[in-house]
């Protein structure tokens, strides 16, 4: 009896914690299917009848822009950012991990220091720059910085990974006459795949969730992302729109949940080894 209790008690505690933790997610799903009059009057978690019309209303989108368009915009920004981060961060990482050049230590230290820089210090001048370039209210301010390796976290992550790779393959490729770009592209990059996948997934999720930058740079409703569309619900105090609002919320977190289910191993490993956050 005592032994059985000792064995099961941690599981019971863990499951209890998990239920509390997952409650908001279940609530989100349930509320997205509730009829309007049940949202606040009934405290039953599950709706009495499933109100699928919340979803059809949600699909119409916000200010005449359909959810399909909003999702497409979010996807465009996220995929652009992923490509930018994977390319630019792996290039910089290869230099730091494999090439010898003057000031390497200084530059690497500087790169690590930028990890701690609060984004707000560069925010306003960056806005002025993009405003001068006529890029405000376009996706350039959101995607272009990713092609310039501004997210030092990923440079750091890939450097750490490349340092752990054996050099023999690269050396024999060099002896066979491969230049540094060929070595990077054909040998090192394929070996770095796990770190690149981690970079890609985190970039996707961060960009998908990002609100601040998108709010500052995008004005036209037809360029809105799904996050910006949801923002229009924030200042509403009425609860009449709860059903469609949470239906749209479910649609917007679905890609993240999918990514999580498919790539959870990479995500958890990435966090455990480098301390990345989401």
């Amino acid at each position: 009896m005592n032994i059985a209790l000792k064995r099961w008690l941690p599981h019971m505690v863990a499951i209890a914690c998990l239920l509390v933790l997952l409650y908001p997610l279940v609530w989100l799903l349930a509320t997205s299917l509730k009829p309007a009059d049940e949202v606040l009057t009934s405290l039953d978690l599950w709706p009495s009848s499933l109100e699928w019309s919340n979803y059809t209303t949600a699909l119409d989108g916000v200010s005449g822009v359909s959810v399909a368009r909003l999702l497409g915009n979010s996807l465009l920004v996220a995929v652009g950012s992923v490509v930018g981060n994977v390319l630019s961060c792996s290039l910089a990482a290869y230099a730091f991990a494999r090439l010898r050049f003057r000031m390497r230590g200084v530059l690497f230290g500087f790169m690590v220091a930028t990890l701690m820089l609060p984004h707000h210090v560069v925010l306003i001048p960056q806005y002025i720059i993009f405003n001068q370039l006529g890029m405000v209210d376009s996706y350039w301010p959101l995607i272009l910085p990713k092609f310039l390796a501004t997210e030092a976290f990923f440079v750091f992550l890939i450097v750490q990974f490349m340092r752990g790779l054996p050099r023999e393959l690269e050396e024999s490729a060099r002896i066979d006459g491969c230049g540094p770009f060929r070595v990077y592209w054909s040998i090192t990059l394929p070996l770095t795949r796990p770190a690149l996948i981690t970079t890609a997934i985190f970039t996707f999720i961060w960009t998908w969730n990002d609100f601040f930058t998108q709010m500052i740079y995008l004005f036209s409703p037809e360029r809105f992302t799904i996050t910006l569309a949801l923002r229009s619900f924030v200042d509403q105090s009425s609860t009449s729109a709860y059903g469609p609002m949470f239906a749209m919320s479910v649609i917007s977190v679905l890609p993240i949940l999918l990514f999580f289910l498919v790539f959870q191993r990479y995500l958890v490993q990435g966090v455990a080894t480098t301390g990345l956050r989401a």
Binding site: L25, T31, L40, M245, S249
Partner: peptide
């Protein structure tokens, strides 16, 4: 458990989840 406990960290920064918390703690929220 490790994966399940980690899931909220991915979702927590999103607009959707913040809206959920706003509704849960609102007057009349569950």
């Amino acid at each position: 458990y490790r994966s399940a406990f980690y899931a909220p960290s991915l979702l927590g920064a999103s607009m959707s989840i913040a809206l959920v918390w706003r509704a849960l703690f609102n007057d009349g929220g569950s």
